[in-house]
Design a protein around this nucleic acid. Structure first.
Lengths: 217, 217
DNA sequence: ACGATATGAATGAATG
DNA sequence: CATTCATTCATATCGT
């Protein structure tokens, strides 16, 4: 993130404890997940140091499970986090694209580029992506991108028809129940769904994003 | 629009530093972009006259390049400007339209309850998703039970998007005190596996074990 | 100076 | 993966 210090008070778990006389239960104060610094640190570490860009369902479950130690979190949050982080990096680059053909008459004098602390690692080098082939050659689905299992099955198990398959049902019981004593170790998001199969890249694939060490708040 | 008027501070760059009563170290130039009147004029012109609401990356580059003549600006600024302008306009409209009666409230509650983590809900009072469509009658998948039998030919196209199933149904403790009740009702909700049968990995997708480092910095 | 408002910036969530 | 919406934080600016 930018050198901004956005103070996030994620510790404001509503923990309404409606049993306060006639006080009616109040809806979750924070409707949206507020990552804790620890969670952000781990996420960024996974993103930059481990090169995790689009974790699979299994990875998401593991990550969320680990991050749950530091606060309420669901697999959905992890999924969105990675998606957003990746998208924003790309977007930022797109916005700060240094048009080689001086689009304007003003010389870029305040062009500053962040320098990565040199973290020797390849973005998608290792087998972090089990089934995310990059065989999207110019030929529109020429061949090779087929299920190496059985052809009789669904092509890429990426079904568009399977709506509402997994609904995250988590009991929001006062967020981190550390105060209550209950561990609330209920796994949420059992039926995860990572964007299955991204064989077809309808979008023109561009240059791979270059990692930029920017973590640590 | 707003009865505001800023001075011609287009030339002021890092002048702001040092006049804060406490001269810090020569911190980065401007803390935040301060659009000049000319820039605002052009932006508004694009917004209202040209109908530009969400310019694309290329448009943003063009605009920022043009606005750079009048002062320091980055694509990011243009992007945020349009985003904010559209959002605020819509917000204002929504607010004025949803309040037929005198709200007798604060005109704007952008400074939410930082000191009061109580159950106070926002004036909006709408916590329901405006587009919670769960009535998608698909030919398959009632909800949860997906039979990966023989689908014959399925997702062969346009299956790139399907993460539209994250509907979360957080159960907000139906009124009972959750503070002491360690229900932790672990829902055995079988969320099925949207992709790859959980039983067999036809693709042999192996998940890398997550690192267990606790500290990094 | 301080409070209020306006607005830039950031990000979670959702859609396409 | 790109784009957009909504919410929130942070800060500049203006009003008193």
């Amino acid at each position: 993130m930018e050198p901004h210090h956005q103070n996030q008070q994620q510790a404001i778990e509503d923990s309404s404890s409606g049993s306060k006389g006639g006080n009616f239960i109040c809806r979750p104060s924070s409707t949206r997940w507020t990552p804790t610094p620890e969670q952000i640190r781990i996420l960024k570490d996974l993103y930059y140091n481990s090169g995790v860009r689009s974790p699979t369902a299994e990875q998401i479950q593991k990550i969320s499970a680990r991050l749950r130690q530091y606060g309420k979190i669901e697999g959905k949050n992890v999924f969105y986090w990675f998606q957003n982080h990746k998208a924003r990096e790309r977007q930022k680059k797109r916005l700060t694209a240094t048009t080689p053909s001086s689009v304007s008459d003003v010389p870029m004098q305040q062009q500053q580029q962040k320098l990565a602390p040199n973290c020797g690692w390849k973005p998608e080098d290792y087998l972090l992506k089990p089934h995310l082939n990059t065989a999207h050659s110019s030929s529109s689905a020429g061949h090779g991108v087929y299920t190496p299992g059985q052809m009789g099955n669904f092509g890429s198990y990426g079904s568009v028809t399977m709506e509402k398959s997994f609904r995250d049902c988590s009991i929001s019981n006062g967020g981190s129940g550390v105060g209550g004593g209950s561990i609330t170790h209920n796994f949420g998001w059992v039926g995860i769904d990572p964007y299955t199969s991204s064989s077809y890249s309808v979008f023109g694939n561009k240059i791979e994003e270059l990692e930029e060490e920017d973590d640590e708040d």
